[in-house]
């Protein structure tokens, strides 16, 4: 593949790929402002409203941060949606309304996430199963097990835990600050640690990374664990937000495919090795801005779906079209 790529040495200076997510974000924001002013609904431009827009996509953002890690190592995780449902149900069943059980419930959810991620990672790196198939299979298994046990809202989240979704620090929702902290943490890990640079190395060229002495299997497994733990956190957030766990919340939000779309719109390459967390955050903002634009403009919900599909493809095409590689 690399024969066709990089035929000409890259010019220093402005690098389009790097700024594409930001350009898209600015474009989406401009459209949002334009539509709001154009339809005479300036009330949508207040600070509170912008915060509210962000608040709607926190679960997607948390999941997408995890997804960034697996996509960076050239893997993918389709099991996040069912894992979100599973952890939300598990947490709310363990809590069952009693504040004393909050800590055990959080631990149980995180452990479930870690175990699923560990299994995914081992199947992908140990058995060499294509990650798409491995995590798709895992998703079917989780969803099957889950719907064998629960078919409706299960358990109850005590008021003390609902703070996670509804609490506020000053004008900012607690969950938004949490998301920001998570993104900073992920950025720091990717930017400053050896593990972070190993991730880029493995994603860029696994063979070369192995010859350079990196334990590639371990990096892949660890990335999958991070992704699944992030999905578990998203599950906890949704349980707190809905005040109970339901076995369909993950599938309803299409968190598996949407988180992948967000990551890719944010400029992280599906083939691995290039991209980062801030692009993912930009992708999440673009997604929620688009949704708000549709809401303000009063687009019919089915037409909204059609436009959404087109926008995902168009956004990826926006920078992919410049690559000289043959894609499949």
């Amino acid at each position: 593949m690399s024969i066709a790529e990089d035929a000409a040495p890259r010019k220093p200076g402005f690098r389009f790929e790097r700024w594409a997510p930001l350009i898209l974000l600015v474009g989406a924001f401009a459209i949002y402002v334009g539509i709001a002013l154009g339809t005479d609904q300036a009330q949508y431009l207040t600070f509170d409203n912008l915060i509210a827009i962000l608040g709607r996509s926190i679960a997607l953002g948390i999941t997408a941060i995890g997804q960034t890690f697996v996509i960076l190592v050239a893997s993918i995780d389709l099991s996040v949606a069912s894992l979100i449902s599973a952890t939300a149900v598990l947490a709310s069943v363990v809590m069952d309304g009693s504040p004393a059980m909050i800590l055990p419930a959080i631990l149980a959810a995180l452990v479930l996430g870690a175990v699923v991620g560990l299994t995914n990672g081992l199947v992908v790196s140990g058995l060499k199963v294509n990650p798409l198939i491995a995590t798709l299979g895992m998703s079917l298994i989780i969803q099957g097990c889950l719907s064998a046990f629960v078919s409706n809202f299960a358990g109850e989240v005590p008021a003390a835990f609902q703070v996670f979704a509804y609490g506020e620090i000053g004008p900012f929702p607690l969950a938004l600050i949490f998301l920001l902290a998570l993104a900073v943490l992920a950025w720091a890990v990717l930017r400053f640690t050896k593990f972070g640079s190993d991730i880029y190395a493995v994603g860029g060229n696994e063979e070369a990374a192995r010859f350079a002495g990196i334990k590639t299997g371990r990096i892949v497994v660890l990335s999958h664990v991070i992704c699944s733990v992030c999905a578990a956190i998203a599950g906890l957030y949704l349980a707190s937000r809905l005040r109970s766990g339901a076995p369909w919340i993950g599938a309803d939000g299409v968190y598996d495919l949407e988180s992948i779309a967000v990551v890719v719109i944010g400029g992280t390459v599906l083939a691995g090795g290039r991209g980062g967390v801030w692009g993912t955050m930009a992708g999440m903002l673009i997604f929620s801005l688009i949704d708000s634009v549709f809401n303000i403009a009063g687009v019919d919900s089915f037409a909204k779906q059609v436009l959404r599909g087109i926008i995902i493809v168009a956004a990826v095409a926006f920078y992919a079209i410049r690559s000289k590689r043959i894609v499949a």
Binding site: L270, V313, A320, S323, R325, V327, A328
Partner: peptide, 8 residues
């Protein structure tokens, strides 16, 4: 458009 088929 060089969009990966998964996304397209």
């Amino acid at each position: 458009l060089r969009v990966p088929s998964l996304i397209a």
